[in-house]
Design a protein around this nucleic acid. Structure first.
Lengths: 327, 327
DNA sequence: CTGAAAGCGCTTACAG
DNA sequence: CTGAAAGCGCTTACAG
């Protein structure tokens, strides 16, 4: 390689990595040779000896979910500034794909992994993850996690905020359109909402519906609600996309939003501002979560092997738009 | 490592990679040792000797753009089935970040790169890209590209389809809300639209507005159009997000869609179905483009160094929803 | 300040 | 069918 400029490879290495003293003149000679030869260091060889690849894995359920796109951008930006690359994996939350990705990432020597794991985790599963001996941070802290670090938000608090807000507006006939039972993110939001209702007054009713976390699930649950409880004046959906579905159903049913019924979602996706009416929602800091996840991961990597797990939880806040109104 | 089972590392290597004959018994011995020792091959060492990392880079402008999220998913799925990883990079279309990413990816030995490069490319820039000696496929074929492969769609045809459709509905006062002048994807769509208008009849007017490719640009251009040409009954925006902005402006102006004015977008994002009214648009196969981009890239990698560039262009089609109506 | 040597964990001809 | 050796392109003590 650049030894063609008269010195030993080790000197070149030291020069390029700023390790140890290097004579000014030989340094200049090396640098100019590097430039003229258009030399590109081989990072994989470097990785082999240093044991660091400056790469992290990001395993999400589906990047097409706008929430994860935001997270991914935050993560990638943070990684970029630290000189790290991020390899993107879509697991669809399927355990087999998750394992397969983790295994593959570990074999490729990534320095750490961020994974969106929301199902309750058995200590067995947790042990498996830990056994790879590579730093891991979880996005959204699942139930029962003790030895893995995580970056999450207070879902309960978010649901509570939504419920309190609707109550303050005077609503007394509420509905919760919730996500799947096994996703703690969704159930926590629902619990927070119901807790707000419970604390309010015994005369307040909140009917609960459950479904998947999609647009069509929101649409279908809204129709069920309309037929079972036509008196409902306010609904909370446990994510924005479900709220969009509910908005569609309400519009088809001839209900005005927010005139007849108020709707509040969760996530604060960009689309909330694009839709008609703009959606009131609970904001969770998506970009920051991604950023904070890689920052935490980098700290863990820096700290080396065994480090006590760290749990960071970001705040949520209500963003009021035009889909909600006083009764 | 697994030499603790009595044989030489080279035998283990051959066994695990199915190269050359291996005795049935020693194979079994090795396999069981691998299992019990929970051995994980080190891919970076492997990469160092084989020169293949089974990794591709994907450089997009911004993963938060739902179009690229779809593309990324298609790309990642295709990569996953082929045993490749994809590292995600967000360039914001900034030349410096693009170069920096390409350089970094090249140093890390990725086997190929997919890059979303839509600005017109000078032969100098093209030479620079080619100089990295690593297979590259472009997303959206820029002007003047000759030696780099690409995966794109017929933007002109898409615009033409949109224009023809509005004309067939009887509209005679049209408007084009176009994107930036320097993005060939947008200008081609505009040219196709105007060509359809030109061929129709001399009595048809189409007013042209230009802006960036965002929601707010669509919103602002729509307002300009409303004041300058209130007689307009049909508008084509060169992407969906701009159409969403236009929809908002029209709604604020008290115009009914599609009663007073028809709107047609471009991309067919998922959100088109969520918005009110659901948006008529030109579909481009996003997921398939991502998939096809990595497939093409893998072919290029397989073929080795110098391979004649290949250009694949996917078809577009009109998806009619409720934002358009006959005059 | 700089060389020479060993080694990172694999694969791959080359002999047996 | 299997070993022994060399080498992938770097970094890192270890001597000078």
């Amino acid at each position: 390689v650049a030894r063609v400029c008269g010195v030993n490879v080790s000197t070149v290495s030291r020069c390029l990595n700023d390790k140890g003293r290097v004579n000014e003149k030989t340094r200049e000679r090396i640098l100019s040779a590097v430039a003229s030869l258009n030399y590109r260091p081989n990072r994989v060889a470097r990785g082999l000896v240093t044991g660091r690849t400056h790469t992290v894995g990001l395993i999400v359920s589906d990047i097409r979910n706008p929430f994860f796109a935001e997270v991914a951008r935050g993560a990638e930006d943070a990684a970029y500034s630290a000189g790290f690359d991020v390899v993107l994996c879509n697991s669809d939350l399927r355990p087999d794909k998750q394992i397969s990705y983790i295994r593959s990432l570990a074999e490729k020597g990534v320095d750490g992994i961020i994974i969106n794991y929301v199902l309750a985790m058995t200590s067995e599963q947790e042990k498996l993850l830990a056994s790879y001996g590579i730093p891991i941070v979880l996005l959204d802290r699942p139930k029962n996690v003790t030895r893995l670090s995580s970056v999450s938000i207070d879902n309960f608090q978010g649901g509570f905020l939504a419920g309190s807000f609707l109550l303050k507006l005077g609503h007394r006939s509420l509905a919760l359109l919730g996500g799947p039972e096994d996703l703690s993110t969704h159930t926590d939001r629902g619990r927070g909402f119901l807790e707000a209702v419970k604390r309010a007054s015994p005369r307040v009713a909140a009917n609960v519906f459950r479904g998947s976390q999609s647009f069509s699930a929101g649409y279908e649950m809204a129709w069920k609600m309309l037929t079972a409880h036509p008196e409902t004046t306010a609904v909370f959906t446990s994510n924005d996309v479900m709220a969009f579905g509910a908005l569609r159903a309400l519009s088809e049913a001839g209900k005005k939003v927010p005139g007849d019924v108020s709707v509040i979602g969760f996530d604060n996706l960009d689309l909330c501002e694009m839709i008609q009416p703009p959606l009131t929602t609970i904001e969770r800091p998506k970009y920051e979560m991604g950023k904070s996840a890689v920052e935490l991961l980098l700290e863990l990597i820096e700290a080396g092997r065994s480090h006590a797990p760290i749990h960071r939880v970001s705040g949520v806040r209500l963003v009021e738009r035009q889909s909600t109104a006083a009764l």
